[in-house]
Design a protein around this nucleic acid. Sequence first.
DNA 1: CGAAACACGTGAGAC
DNA 2: TGTCTCACGTGTTTC
Lengths: 231, 231
Amino acid sequence: MAIGNLLSESGNSDFENDDSSTINNVVNRSIKRGKKGDSSTISREMAMDVHVEAERKRREKLNHRFYALRSVVPYVSKMDKASLLGDAVTYINELKAKIKNLESKLIEPQKKHILMEQHDSHSASSTIVTEQYGANNKSLFSSNGARNGMEIEVKIIGSEGVIRVQSMDMNYPCTRLMNAMKELKFQIYHASISSVKDLLLQDIVIRVPEEFLNEEMLKSAIISKLSVIEN
Amino acid sequence: MAIGNLLSESGNSDFENDDSSTINNVVNRSIKRGKKGDSSTISREMAMDVHVEAERKRREKLNHRFYALRSVVPYVSKMDKASLLGDAVTYINELKAKIKNLESKLIEPQKKHILMEQHDSHSASSTIVTEQYGANNKSLFSSNGARNGMEIEVKIIGSEGVIRVQSMDMNYPCTRLMNAMKELKFQIYHASISSVKDLLLQDIVIRVPEEFLNEEMLKSAIISKLSVIEN
DNA sequence: CGAAACACGTGAGAC
DNA sequence: TGTCTCACGTGTTTC
């Protein structure tokens, strides 16, 4: 599958194909405007370009979610998105009805209940679970930006590199760092993450690509990637 | 947000009617082409117009379905469509797990034994998933779309959980897993990642939120998150 | 100002 | 032949 796409030009339906990141299509997708006002519109065009790219990303994400939804809804009548959504709604309602049914069936027989079976998860309210999920959020240290003092140390030994990061354990610095590793396409040999109190320590051993000639280059590449990744 | 649509100065009063069902559509849609060649392009323009209208109809329908979905999914983290789809998938998987749980609880009528179906460790507690893309599966339950042959094992000990994942080292499964941890808001105590040949082994120790009553729930939550995360 | 999310019009492919 | 569905680039709005 997927031979090089010379003259691809459209095509590209949404089949799954999965990795959008890897081979990444740097294809001549940027034919766009041949000519334009030549005055000071260059920054304009660049901004446009990033906009186009962002929108493309968004579409891709949405389509992945559609596919994921399709994989959990057992029978989807047709292939189009509207039908999928409709079937998902009816399916959810079916599941809910079924649960209600089961619960009522379960509560009814009051005799000789053996209903312990949940030793360790007493967890108060052994009654029906109801309502999913924490939903505690609200405050939830979200908020983007907020560089939480990351200290980065880099060491190169032969073809291997050691990245050592120490930071506040907020906003999932490990997720952020892993995203950076992915975007930099570093091959990871080993990683170890430890949380101690409100500090998070991360050690990662990678294979250093040849284009990074010294530790400083490697470190600044990581830092700039980190600063770009949204959390 | 005030209303737009200042009475459009008529001109051609083509039966546009619009019938917009839902809320206001603010847009001032009918500016379109001001003037054009009047020769033989009229049919062209009419055809175009009907196309535009049809597409508008389609979009309206889709949005209506989105709204319907939103009304059956109890808690949607954010307001945007992608989050809605993702949460719908998660919710469906939770419902499935819940049903499974209730059913197993129900099929156990008069066993005088305390046959601890919880301690035994069979009970699918630490089963292995190895699934590859839904759609081919058939059974109603356990339709989790784990990607590139991820084998997931989950163990709960007290308030801590151990997640052990083995997969092909392609497409940065560690990044994906970390993203899942973040989205599930799990607090990470420790993590260890090792690459051996083309296999990637990941062990993560987390604090298990109370709402996860057993290993099965925890595992299916992780799987469904994984299936939603695009890489 | 950028970044994110959306709706829109339009070209293209399927049947 | 139209009709349906989709992806794309773009304008606009919100924070």
